[in-house]
């Protein structure tokens, strides 16, 4: 495909624990088109972070990856990132792929001035000639991400900044090399609503002005609806449903997606009790024979327990892995 940036094909990640291989991500296919923001949603432990980390090779040493991660470069070459040696992959991380981590408190170096931390990326990848040029670039970007008085803030340490400000520094660090892909792993989970709204707006603007694609990992459906173009719903390491954002919110097909959407308390609707998904997420490593969701599903039928549902086309770019989605259509 011409306008694809990144393609995950049958990606499987497993972690070795007590001599057992526990699959975390089970055959995931994701396509990131150029210039689009793709959301990856699911509850904690569903493997969304592991999927994203596998792209940058940031998995723990005990993890094994199979499948393909295909990077479509601007000059038309296609590289499989899983087969890349570490030093080659390092050259991609930064200039080609940027990542924003969840906790801005712990992912910045507390002993280093924030300006120097952002400039470090430029210096390591030799994108500037000297420190002065790097500093100039950093200060301009710090201003762009909404840090007031960037010349002065360049010399601040992380502890002198608020959570929202630190997250802005993280964003600056991720985009300073003008990467093609931005991976944002729960970028606003630790932040207040007001700051969240500002940060989301900023990410959206940055993607627009640098022609970036982005993967937005979150468990917040509101965030997805606000910022993403398309969305993948993940459960127990598998993609349950994928669609354009407007499609998914207007016509959720998978019982899991419906459950997720109806368990959000909404302003305006005042039910006596919220709808919930019964049960809990099963423990890792306990592999179901049939559909992973069947034990919590409200629309389960006999074969759900014995067969894996294949992904079916529901029209208009909407795909769902469920036997009973047609029945559930309203």
């Amino acid at each position: 495909m011409k306008d694809t940036l990144l393609e995950l094909k049958d990606l499987t990640v497993s972690v070795r624990q007590e001599k057992k291989e526990i699959p975390i991500v089970k055959g995931v296919d994701i396509v990131i088109p150029k210039g689009q923001i793709v959301g990856l949603v699911g509850e904690s432990g569903c493997g969304k972070s592991m999927t994203a980390r596998s792209i940058m090779g940031l998995l723990p040493p005990s993890a094994g990856v199979s499948g393909q991660i295909l990077w479509h470069d601007t000059d038309g070459t296609v590289t499989d990132l899983t087969g890349l040696r570490e030093n080659k992959l390092r050259k991609m991380c930064g200039p080609k792929i940027g990542m924003i981590f969840q906790e801005p408190m712990t992912s910045l170096n507390p002993m280093m001035r924030i300006g120097d931390q952002v400039a470090e990326v430029l210096l390591i990848h030799k994108l500037v000639k000297n420190r002065a040029e790097a500093a100039e670039k950093v200060i301009r970007l710090l201003g762009e991400v909404g840090i007031s008085d960037p010349g002065l803030r360049y010399r601040s340490y992380p502890h002198e900044l608020s959570g929202g400000m630190r997250q802005r520094v993280m964003i600056a660090m991720a985009v300073i090399c003008e990467p093609d892909l931005l991976i944002a792993d729960e970028p606003t989970t630790a932040l207040d609503v007001t700051v969240e709204a500002q940060i989301l707006k900023l990410i959206r603007r940055m993607c627009g002005s640098y022609h970036m694609s982005a993967i937005m990992i979150t468990h917040n459906m509101g965030v997805v609806s606000e910022i993403c173009d398309s969305v993948y719903v993940m459960y127990m390491g598998r993609i349950m449903e994928r669609a354009a954002v407007s499609q998914l919110f207007e016509r959720p097909l998978h019982p899991y997606t419906k459950g997720l959407l109806s368990s959000i308390p909404r302003i305006g609707a005042n039910p006596e009790y919220l709808e919930t998904i019964p049960g809990n997420i099963p423990e890792l490593g306990k592999e179901a024979v049939g559909c992973d969701f069947c034990i919590r599903c409200s629309e389960d039928e006999h074969r759900c327990f014995f067969e894996h549902p294949q992904e079916e086309d529901a029209g208009e770019g909407h795909f769902v892995s469920c036997f009973s989605w047609k029945r559930g259509e309203r």
Binding site: G146, S148, G164, M165, V193, T194, V195, E196, A197, Q198, L200, K201, L202, N220, M221, G222, V223, S225, E226, V245, S246, F249, E250, L261, I264, R266, I267, G268
Partner: peptide, 24 residues
């Protein structure tokens, strides 16, 4: 009002109010 306008809303749930880019 500012707090209420900052909530990310799922689509079709009320209109969007621009929270602005400034910091409170």
């Amino acid at each position: 009002k500012y707090l209420l306008s900052s909530i990310p809303r799922t689509r079709g749930m009320g209109n969007q109010v621009d929270p602005g880019d400034g910091v409170m």
